[in-house]
Design a protein around this nucleic acid. Sequence first.
RNA 1: GCCGGGAUAGCUCAGUGGUAGAGCAGCUCACUCGUAAUGAGCAGGCCGUGAGUUCAAGUCUCAUUCCCGGCUCCA
Length: 640
Amino acid sequence: MGIKVVFREAEKELDSGVSIIEALKAFDKKEAKKALGARINGKIIDLSTVLTEDTGFDIITGETPEGLEMIRHSTAHVMAAAVKRLFPDAKVTIGPAIESGFYYDFDRKEPFKPEDLPKIEKEMQKISNENLPFEVKTLTVAEAVEFFKAAGENYKVEIIEDLAAETGTTEVTIYKCGDFTDLCRGPHVPSTSKIKAFKLLDVAGAYWRGDETKPMLQRIYGTAFDSKEELDIYLKNLEEAKKRDHRRLGKELDLFSFQEDGGPGLAYWHPNGALIRHLIETFWKNEHIKRGYSLVYTPHIARAHLWETSGHLNFYKENMYSPIDIEGQEYILKPMNCPFHILMYKTKLRSYRDLPLRWAELGTVYRYERSGVLHGLLRVRGFTQDDAHIFCTPEQLKEEMINCVRFARYLNESFGFKDYDIFLATRPEGHAGTSEEWDVAENTLREALVQEGVPFTVDEGGAVFYGPKIDIKLKDALGRHWQGPTIQFDFNLPRRFDVNYIGQDGQEHKCFMVHRALLGSMERFMGCLIEHFGGAFPLWLSPVQIAILPISDRHQEYAQKIADQLREKDFRVTVDDRREKIGFKIREAQVQKTPYMLVIGDEEVAAAKIAVRERKEGDLGAMDIYRFIDILKERIEKKI
RNA sequence: GCCGGGAUAGCUCAGUGGUAGAGCAGCUCACUCGUAAUGAGCAGGCCGUGAGUUCAAGUCUCAUUCCCGGCUCCA
């Protein structure tokens, strides 16, 4: 019996039971070679799938995201196959494709060593050369359980049993690839010969199902691409990211350090880093004052009692430093600033006429983070939040949210983050407040975003228990995502602390309260900034903006004069008066990523000019100092 | 916290049981030089910390501190 098969507008009559790959060959041999999988009605399936009714299909190639995912998933299987060949005692668990590649978790007594990776890679290459087909087979749950039990693969048995219990499925699929058979939903590329551009990157421990109470497995990370060229580009990007690592640049540019004697997760800001921080903070403060915020300062510790009232000792205890005993009273280092601002709010009776009150503080907080999660400036135990709390009436909430979003965007764009995604996080399970309250708050936040005309994604259930929030995720120069501004509504604290205002009606009303941080913390933002710019900060943030490089001793005097003139205009200038060759001085300024170098020699002194070199553009030629100052001013104005 | 790897000069790193090394940086001297490294010399180390094994430990064992990679992107 014949069936009608459609491929890209062309139609053919083929025998029922024909496989997609055979059908495809009938249409276009070239495409058949490129195909990794097929798509029918939006579903991605194996090329070996047989067709029994009239249908249309399209192919998936390695050039599409779906194809790439297939390649990676299949590469994970090839890796598992290689591991089973080399280490027969390893038990397989799961091995998905992930954003940047794939991983596979194994259970094995002896952990994998970094030296094992090349061996496994070699075996994978062999498997690829063997051109083994991926063969799919459907088994009943009982058959599959029996099969994997016989193979001693107890994790697979657990997966199948859970799967059956959760979804009620009675059948599962297995894929055979040479002598290795794995439980897998597929789809897979037709043969291991399609797996040709891969690299194993790391070994790491990972808990079975991410659960700390479950056994620790050995995870191998790798990546794979459609072509060797793409793999090379990816590996090069990894190198580039390594060069931009803020921990490395922090050392090279002498920005910050961590001290073993001081304790982990506690940053030391060296003069260069501190200067950048000062510039960020000054800009931040001025912008807040412009927008009707008031700056406040609060202490670093408070009585344990305060944290009982706020509820932190209940829901946040494991992140807080232990109490300090002073005169029989327990004090705790603050993990958040909000209770302090509330105490200040409550120092007098507030009228609706006083609201909104916007109180901002660069508040330093301490939080206990588990030792294994600390990471440079990005995850620390002591940090300064660019915090603010807005106390307002329900009617004012929307406008305040709009202002926050606008402010957040302006601030981050000023620091070069022009690309970001906005998320509205809605109520999670077990939240505080009533459903009606959440409806009102979520709708107000949504309306604010709509009115502001910014695209956003709703993160269902992504909010914290005390209220909905707007999160902004920044994208850096390498396209990586960073947690950026967060604007959170709070039902909880105004109630716990009984935060009120007197309304027009002369009655007490509960305040609305908004927490927001626009940069996050000075530490994390600094780390993010360093990586975004690769250490080459824009002119306005560069610790040294201009390095003056006299060619020989007789040019010192003129160089000093130029330096004085620039310092007069508030530029940060150094004069390199060492007796070194000009090439050496340039190299050093270049390595320090100094935005401008001024070369001063006989010609410049004679013509009363300066030879300007920009760190990226190179030699800009000679110009007079006023022209140069104009260039500087323009760049600073534009914050580039 | 847990798994794995690591810690040697200011920095980057070599050193598999027998007298601690290199490059860069630092200091001294010479060179007065035109757009990314001038040359020579000198100095620099409780080999993260604490125990242990050994005639002998940077090296082996144990503990500890800190750093690095990871710890449900679900067959």
